[in-house]
Design a protein around this nucleic acid. Structure first.
Lengths: 344, 344
DNA sequence: AAGGTGCATGGTAGCGCTAACATGACGGGC
DNA sequence: GCCCGTCATGTTAGCGCTACCATGCACCTT
């Protein structure tokens, strides 16, 4: 840190390696730009030059500084991924698929947790925009007009996911939560249910599913759907307690649609404890097709979302934008699927 | 992208905002460096100057380019977090706590998934080192000597987590998995168990817990501990099937230690299906104290790890290193706690 | 009065890389 | 032999910021 040499000397290297492209170039006997090309566009060099540079890189253990590269080329090869909170397992599959797809294409994922209120969301957004990512993927639709304005102004490709809107900021990959509610309602009605209830998280998307469900059953003259609202993140315990509350209020319930598999499992367990026959007496449907759904007892009927496909599609959008390829179809509906199992 | 103007003209701005510190300085009537100080060390300016700069920033909507700042200061304010895969919920709490702590201190988290074999791990490592993060947090101990060498050579602070070693690359925050196995064994022995089995993931840390368990019961002359090995990530289904296999092989089993709560829940469910009384006939212990453990039926005895504390401590290590504060105690044991509930 | 001291602000020179243009060698068509 | 195109490589000039030192001024000390 402290240098005993004369003060006017060239600035001291602070960091370990401190190896630069110029050092490698000197060793290989070429100009710096040639090393740059060896790393970025190797097919533009003769085999001989390329080999010389590669050898110099290997000998020195040089790792190019992408911060400098990013500044020079205005391409950071960084992508921001915003989730409400990572602690909820809903988006994990999507994050995993994205991280993987981005890593393969040479991009790195920056994680941001937006679920801490508007004020901190704006601070986070500035921190992210300050890093000049090549793209931003958000889970859910951005609703705050201020946030939408800032994202738009930053000129960074934005992909909204896990939801659908005809008017995305930029691009959107997801599915219709209302249609999920609708389909589940029809699934249950078809099986003879006439007195359904809902256990729902208090987030926007779960709300849309509930709305879709309520609308669908209303068409069959079921005007009242009892429900319990649960704060996110949803838990098994919340599922048990909500189910208990619901069934005590309406003992004649014959179906429950839960906004997460974990809560559905809770309902299943609470039902078991109370001696309620599932699906004989009451049907239970979850959401998410988490990896435990198939192995519950009875196994859980649920709604499968292909989180991996969402992640991959979102990554492709960002990468295509960053590489300057044309984007067509900025609204992608990946749909969903009801997985019939024993519980309904 | 293509400019119809004369070719010798100054390079064109490619990016939206394109606003720089110099623009803000001009507007505020100060030098660029003063704007830089207004953003980074505001208390070094007079209230008047600061206000003028702040106003200019607000008027323009300027967001400083941290890529450039990082290059100039060799402080990227980026921290890499490496997990085997994000899809396993084990580290979520830790990641969440870290992301939060880092965000508060102005650092951004870069996510990397290392669990794809040695070769891809090295590529990932170069991608990460290339971004010159101010710190790297890895879950687990890094064992590959090549990786350890590279991390050491990069001169970046490294925090290993979720495990313990007297010889960390740099710093380590975690707990002893062997001691976990030992404590659980003693817990079960104290309660009269003499024929315990194990359902364990095939990862290193779960292996250490198993070893600790086996060693502990061996001291009480229990020489053989039947076990089932499960590939990670562990699932409820794997728990059910492993439990079934184990109980069929050894019907006299009186305890099972599972390497994850999810598998313990699977064992619980399978036990229920088979009419095995828990804990009367057989005791079940999980690991992780996931948020469903307390609400299972019977509630799950398990081992609680304070993932949040691990995350916070790891973040503190990195931030202290980055800010040049002295680090003492580079090995931190945060311990664990057995949570006695109904299942054991 | 001369010479500090402390503070707010500014000028200069990079950080390590790449875009854009320049150069020079080579080969082919006429 | 000349011109041109093509290709590999080099030169130059930044990208947008901050470290470092310099400057100027108010206020003190002796």
């Amino acid at each position: 840190m402290h240098e005993p040499q004369s003060p006017r000397v060239r600035r001291v290297r602070r960091r370990g390696a401190g190896l630069t492209l110029a050092d490698v170039a000197r060793l290989a006997g070429v100009s710096p730009i040639t090393v740059s090309r060896a790393l970025n566009t190797p097919d533009r060099l003769t085999a001989d030059t390329l080999a010389r540079v590669r050898e110099a890189v290997a000998r020195t253990g040089y790792v190019p500084n992408r911060v400098a590269g990013g500044l020079a080329s205005s391409r950071s090869r960084l992508v921001a991924v915003l989730v409400p909170t990572i602690a909820s397992p809903v988006f994990l599959e999507t994050i995993q698929a994205m991280t993987e797809a981005f890593a393969e294409a040479g991009y790195q994922v920056m994680l941001g947790q937006s679920g801490y209120g508007t004020e901190r969301e704006e601070v986070l957004l500035d921190a992210i925009i300050g890093r000049r990512p090549d793209g931003i993927v958000v889970t859910g639709i951005m609703h705050s007009p201020e946030v939408r304005r800032r994202l738009g102004a930053a000129g960074i490709p934005v992909v909204e996911t896990w939801d659908l809107t005809p008017t995305p900021i930029d691009m959107v990959v997801g599915f219709s939560h209302e249609k999920v509610g609708l389909s589940v309602a029809e699934y249950l009605l078809t099986r003879g249910c006439r007195r359904p209830g809902i256990i729902s998280a208090d987030d926007l998307r779960a709300g849309l599913r509930r709305q879709g469900f309520v609308d669908a059953v209303a068409r069959r003259d079921i005007r009242e759907v009892p429900y319990e609202l649960v704060p996110t993140p949803t838990t098994l315990g919340a599922g048990r307690r909500s189910f208990a509350a619901l069934i005590e209020r309406c003992p004649d319930l014959d179906a429950v649609f839960c906004s997460s598999d974990m809560m559905a499992l809770g309902a299943l367990i609470e039902g078991g404890v109370r001696g309620i026959a599932v699906p004989g007496q009451l049907r239970i449907v979850g959401f998410g097709d988490n990896n435990f759904a198939a192995d519950a007892s009875p196994s859980l009927t649920t709604v499968r979302i292909d989180g991996t496909a969402i992640g991959r599609r979102a990554a492709a959008f960002v990468i295509d934008s960053a590489e300057g390829r044309p984007i067509d179809g900025r609204v992608v509906d990946l749909g969903f699927e009801i997985v019939p199992r024993e519980s309904a």
